[in-house]
């Protein structure tokens, strides 16, 4: 197979775009596409300060690399979750993230959950009903809280995450299977900061396939944590991704079409804002100042045991 742009040997074929590219043209194409989506969905401008949530995985490190190559003012935020799982999962992902930042002379914020809140994620999960069985819900809540906090404290204009198209399609699939209107209303490339205490969020990779992001990381020589989070095994999102990939094998472009059709349907008014029961009822947490769906302390503040310095 030959590169469509130069005729050299292709290293990747993107069946959904009917596009095969060589290494050089693929490494140009990905930042070009990312820039296109940043502009199309009005995510942020060249003068704005961007905070990239980085996990040490292929997507977030690649996103940071792309934004750096595109010339954006992008700092990183790594959250140390204290997950070991016999792999030193958190310490290894932090090490790789720090190496990445040092190589490019980029600013990296590190927030260690244990040092800040007195417990690791698995410990919090063991103590609380929210974490019964699996710590993923506790982990998600904690990461959302810390990302928003650091973005506010640092006066960043936007917080970006490395969610790729497969992530978005899997979430959409789950929310559609269960018809969860609140989540469907909120899903999109940009989540506006439409309440006090909230920071604008964006997903610049939302239209790029996970396979292409892995290829980008490999071709750029980005060393990322290859092992999966030990708690992700058997997760619904991975199961949904596998199902969608079976569909994609028979119908190239099915995942992209599913997501884009959803965005179009939303734009056409298929999902009313009133379908999101939380949107009008947000309160401000008296402890942390972040929005919460019920009066009083938010779920994160109620969950955490803070260390008094």
């Amino acid at each position: 197979m030959k590169c469509r742009k130069c005729g050299e040997k292709a290293v990747i074929n993107m069946r959904q775009h009917k596009l095969a590219l060589c290494k050089t043209h693929f490494l140009d194409w990905i930042p070009g596409q990312t820039q296109r989506f940043i502009e199309k969905y009005r995510m942020f401008g060249p003068q704005e300060r961007v905070l990239v949530a980085v996990s040490g995985g292929k997507d977030s490190l690649s996103l940071w690399d792309i934004l750096w190559r595109l010339g954006y003012q992008a700092d990183g935020l790594y959250i140390g979750l204290g997950i070991d799982g016999g792999l030193n999962y958190s310490s290894e992902s932090q090490r790789l993230t720090q190496i990445f930042a040092e190589q490019r002379d980029l600013k990296l914020h590190i927030v260690n959950v244990l040092e800040n809140y007195g417990e690791t994620i698995p410990e919090m999960a063991q103590r609380t009903t929210r974490g019964k069985g699996k710590p993923c819900s506790v982990c998600g809540l904690t990461k959302r809280h810390i990302m928003n906090r650091i973005a506010r404290e640092g006066a960043y204009d936007v917080l970006v995450t490395g969610h790729n198209l497969d992530d978005e399609a899997a979430v959409l699939f789950g929310n559609t299977l269960n018809w969860i209107p609140g989540y469907l209303v909120r899903q999109g490339p940009v989540l506006e900061a439409n309440r006090p205490g909230l920071v604008r969020k964006a997903k610049p990779l939302c239209r790029i396939y996970e396979r292409e992001m892995a290829a980008y990381a490999l071709m750029r020589g980005i060393e990322y944590i290859y092992d999966e989070c030990p708690y992700a095994e058997g997760s619904k999102s991975i199961y949904y991704k596998e199902l969608l990939n079976k569909l994609e094998a028979d119908r190239p472009g099915a995942k992209l079409s599913f997501y884009l059709s959803f965005l179009q349907a939303k734009k056409n008014g298929l999902f009313a804002q009133a379908a999101d029961p939380d949107i009008e009822l947000l309160h401000t947490c008296p402890t942390c100042g972040q929005p919460t769906s019920a009066p009083g302390e938010c779920a994160f503040c109620r969950m955490t045991v803070k260390i008094v310095e």
Binding site: K58, D59, E210, A232, I238
Partner: peptide
Amino acid sequence: LVAVISGG
């Protein structure tokens, strides 16, 4: 082969 799916 390099696995590309991640999630959780």
